[in-house]
Amino acid sequence: MSEASPVDQHDSAEAAPSAAIWTVPNLISMARIVLIVVFGWLLIAGHDAWAIGALAAAGISDFLDGYLARRWNQVTELGRVLDPAADRLLTIVVVLGLAIRGVIPWWLVAILLARDVMVGVALLIARSRGVSSAQVTFVGKAATFGLYVTLPLAFLAYERWDGVWVAAIVGACVAAALYWISGIGYARDLARRAHPASDGASVAGAPERLG
């Protein structure tokens, strides 16, 4: 994620993102998207050890690109696109792959994907009104981190340690609740900025930060 992490975003909120493309954080973000696709193929093909390795590498890059973007002052407009795109792609690939393998229930897949559909529709409507996407929030990143931890744990524990598997599924449900909370906040922020402020000025130009 070339955009900074929640703490990093707060520190760099005053600096406008650049239009640069070929920055190191952006390259890491692009590599992360490739790793997610590779993980999905390995998971479906049954190469579990390699799949976990690809997922772990993607998770490390999730922290690394945000850290470097802040550290080197390389927060970019492209990074703001790659960040949520990579997170959404990861969610889709992981939950679908694990559900196909029977590791997680399909109702959990429905809950997670419904949230992404809701946010996607809100984003399309907002962009049609000239509102750009907002920054990722702490709650949203916490939810994503929770899914990073609980879903692979469920994968590792499946048909091995029943108690751990149940705990992982419960943890994934908690992360899913946070995921929806962040999604609703995201949609509400987009709706707020899509309408003119009371003084006649466009809220679309307000700082892109979710409350």
Rank of each mutant, 00 (worst) to 15 (best):
M1V: 10
V7P: 03
D8R: 13
A13S: 12
P17Q: 10
S18M: 06
A19K: 13
A19R: 14
L27T: 13
I28N: 11
M30C: 14
R32N: 15
L35H: 08
L42S: 10
A45D: 15
G46I: 05
H47L: 10
D48K: 14
A51V: 03
I52K: 05
A54L: 09
A54Y: 02
A58C: 11
I60N: 12
S61N: 04
G66R: 02
L68G: 08
A69N: 05
R71I: 07
W72N: 13
W72P: 02
Q74G: 06
E77Q: 14
L78Y: 05
D83Q: 10
D83E: 09
R88P: 03
V94K: 00
L96C: 14
W107P: 00
I111A: 15
V119F: 01
A126H: 05
S128F: 05
R129D: 07
V131A: 05
V131G: 04
S133H: 03
T137W: 01
K141C: 03
K141V: 00
T144F: 14
A154P: 01
R160M: 01
W161M: 02
V166Q: 06
A168S: 02
V170W: 03
C173N: 04
A175R: 01
A175M: 08
A177E: 04
G183S: 12
Y186W: 13
R193L: 06
S202K: 12
A204G: 15
A204F: 09
R209S: 14
L210V: 15
